[in-house]
Amino acid sequence: MKKIVLFAANGFIGRALIDYVAKNHPDYQLTAVSRSPIKDLPATFKHVQWDGKTLGLWTEELEDAELVVNLAGKSVNCRYNQQNKAAIFSSRLDSTRIIGEAIEECVVKPTCWINAASATIYEHSLERPNTETDGIIGKGFSVNVCKAWEKQFFAFKDLPLRQILLRTTIVLGKEGGVYPVLKKLARFGLGGKMGKGNQQISWIHVTDFCEALWFLFQNNRANGIYNVGSPNPVTNSNFQRELRKSLGISFYLNQPEWMLTAGAIFIGTEKELILKSRFIQPEKLTGLGFRFQFPSIELCLSDLQK
């Protein structure tokens, strides 16, 4: 069978990819690599452990693989103290570096390596969408993480394979990520706009994320950096309105910035994750002919509520 190796397979998106491959591509055998065991792995798939920073027996799985996918990285949903900042950096750079080194040692190298990245690399933008060709790189801690992450990935640019970097936006799915949190807040009455509400939210349904990744893998012309998000971003205010509508909620309170500042401290996160305007267009992805199953936020949220 053709082989896929998926790193950080135990996360929300990793689990979605496992289910996607099992359902849609039964001719592929997937090796799930993670620090901890994975429950309910399909019978034809296998699991291998790693520590995310050193070579080990897991490297054997890369031999003759058609696709390697790396999603590893500590969640940014935390307070940005020195310990967490160091872990955010190291979890991304170490995992990317060690996978590259392992591929270099392969006798029969993989065909395609897809690595996670983030659309957070772009500037805070309210009016102008950032594309791969004319996007403006921002400043600050999160952007520095993204820049170092991408630099580490492309340090292996001389490998004889296709390298695809996914600058991914907010991924919306029932089983994890931000959607269950926002849904719970809305049901508690906190479903109003956050801050001024004019910050742009670029987003993608988890099914479209899996489809886009597979589309790029299958397209031999695909190489380099790709924005991965719906072509129809919305403002925070509009997102919250459509979320309430999908849940059948009429009562809501807006959340001014002072409330978000206090709330972020209380739940152990950073208000930047809510207030930064992430405004991108997937110019290269749509240019290759990719079609979204859930192009609008209305379709996306309606599906997630089923």
Rank of each mutant, 00 (worst) to 15 (best):
A16I: 06
K271G: 08
K23I: 01
I267M: 06
L285V: 07
N227W: 02
G56C: 07
V33C: 05
R128W: 09
C146E: 06
W149H: 12
G189I: 03
T120G: 08
K245S: 09
I121E: 01
S296R: 12
D94N: 14
I38M: 09
N130V: 02
G56E: 11
I265P: 00
E104Q: 15
E298M: 03
L301E: 09
D40A: 12
T59F: 03
D303E: 14
K85Y: 10
I103D: 01
R97K: 11
G56H: 11
K196Q: 08
L247F: 02
E242R: 08
A264S: 15
D64Q: 13
K139H: 15
L126P: 01
T286I: 15
G177I: 02
T261L: 03
G263S: 05
T168S: 14
S142E: 13
T120F: 10
Q255T: 14
F251I: 01
A16N: 13
V108R: 14
G268H: 14
R15C: 04
L159I: 00
I4Y: 05
L243M: 11
P256M: 10
L93M: 08
F279V: 03
N232L: 09
S277I: 02
R291N: 14
I249N: 06
S125M: 09
R35T: 13
G73S: 12
G11F: 02
L253R: 10
W50L: 00
V5P: 01
L172A: 05
A186Y: 07
G268W: 13
S75T: 15
G189T: 03
V107I: 14
H205A: 05
S230W: 01
T269N: 10
E270W: 03
F45P: 04
K139N: 15
P256Y: 12
F45C: 07
D303R: 10
E242G: 07
N130H: 14
E175M: 01
L243S: 09
Q240S: 12
P180W: 00
G177R: 05
N223E: 12
K85D: 10
W203I: 04
L41F: 03
S237L: 06
E298Q: 15
P295N: 10
